[in-house]
Computed example of a mutant assay.
Amino acid sequence: MNYRTLGKTGYSISEISLGTWQVGGKWGSTFNNANADKILNTAIDSGINFIDTADVYSEGLSEKAVGRLIKSRSEKIYVASKCGRFITPHTNKNYTAKVLRQYVEDSLTNLGIETLDLIQLHCPPTEVYYRPEIFEEFDKLKDEGKIGALGVSVEKVEEAIKAIEYDNVTTVQIIFNMFRQRPNELFFEQAKKKNIGIIARVPLASGLLSGKYSKKTTFHKDDHRAFNRNGDAFDKGETFSGVDYNLGLETVELLKQHFPDVSLPHLALKWILNHPEISCVIPGASNVEQLVSNISASSINNLTNGDVETIRNIYQEHIKKYVHQYW
């Protein structure tokens, strides 16, 4: 495993880390504690030392699984959680310092720890980024020893750029993959200047870039890939990175044709890591086999300039006009 510095937090973290949205079961399925424990322990055994979770993942069960992991291991494990998505309705008006503070307290209870290494605002409405009092509350939480650092998880590049105007924002978690390349423009440039850690989420475009799906693939009715393709439940960009499913399948076939000797998910993860601004990538895993496969992407050969150009051309010709300016 290779390690990179998470911006101005100074944390040295595994370049391939673990996102826990679907840990313990596939999207839409019942949470399986034994499966979650197996995945999390295998991650640590494999050199991962950064775990990203959230209070809303399986209604706190994901955080509790991470808490069990921490108690059972001697290694230093950096834990990042997120807060705010429990707010209903999820509007700017309902974001208050008091509410967010309570969510942090609840996460600490779920995890069974006194200090969260990183707490992140969980894709709040755009208006929240223009409210200094929200960000100031996290300075108080840090002074109280309840958090080590503050970050944000964003939907849009514009939100990321606004967020890093606050000095106490140390990290940005953003969708970045071969189907969502816009962050590698102004945002990466600004983040580098301010030493912001960048956490790449949805690296496989909700599984599209695994290369395993077809027009015959079906998804559980409670899986966001079945019910949120048009943004009916939350931001459309969270599901297949906002790419039309059939268009995504066609573009995946092009990638396979150009890179016949490389596992597509390995290519997708290595492409992200090819960007030095990235601190880590956080693919999820619903089983140990997925986890081990993801980790092995770190050891494949670096992409050539020709590889990078090919991927850029495919994006610009087939995907860009449908996603680039929306997020």
Rank of each mutant, 00 (worst) to 15 (best):
C280N: 14
A297D: 05
N301G: 09
T304D: 02
Q290V: 03
S299M: 12
N287P: 06
I300T: 07
L303Q: 08
I282M: 08
S296M: 02
L303N: 15
S298Q: 10
I295L: 14
G284W: 11
S293A: 10
V281H: 04
I300W: 00
P276R: 12
E277C: 07
S286K: 11
T304P: 06
V308N: 03
N305K: 13
L291D: 01
N287V: 02
E277A: 15
A297L: 09
V292M: 04
Q290S: 09
A285F: 05
P283T: 13
V292G: 01
P283F: 09
V281E: 06
G306F: 05
N287A: 01
N294A: 02
V281Y: 07
S293T: 09
P276L: 10
L303E: 13
L291G: 01
I295F: 00
L303Y: 14
N302Q: 12
S298I: 15
S296I: 02
E277H: 14
G284N: 14
V292R: 06
V308E: 00
S293W: 00
E277Q: 15
E289N: 14
C280A: 13
N301V: 04
I300E: 03
I282L: 13
N305Q: 12
P283A: 12
A285S: 13
S279I: 08
P276D: 15
N305W: 02
H275Y: 12
L291E: 00
V288Q: 15
E277W: 08
L303K: 11
I295S: 02
A285P: 06
G284F: 05
V288E: 15
V288M: 13
V288W: 11
I282C: 10
A297F: 08
V308F: 01
G284A: 13
I295W: 04
N301H: 08
V288A: 14
S299W: 07
I300G: 00
I300V: 14
P283Q: 08
A297R: 04
N305M: 08
N294V: 04
I282Q: 10
E277P: 07
G284S: 14
N294M: 06
N287K: 14
S299Y: 12
T304A: 02
I300M: 12
N294D: 11
N294L: 03
L291R: 00
P283V: 05
V308T: 08
E277V: 12
V292N: 02
N305V: 00
T304W: 03
S293P: 00
G284Q: 09
I295N: 06
C280S: 11
V292T: 11
S293L: 07
V288L: 12
V288Y: 08
S293F: 06
N287Q: 12
S299Q: 15
T304N: 01
C280G: 04
G284K: 09
I282A: 09
V308Y: 01
V308R: 04
V292D: 00
P276V: 09
G306Q: 12
A297P: 04
D307R: 06
S286I: 03
G306T: 11
Q290N: 11
A297Q: 07
I295G: 00
S286D: 15
S296H: 05
S296D: 09
I300K: 01
S293H: 11
I300L: 03
S299T: 14
S279L: 11
A297H: 08
V292A: 07
N287C: 13
D307G: 06
S286M: 04
N287S: 12
N302M: 10
D307N: 11
L291I: 10
I295R: 05
S299H: 12
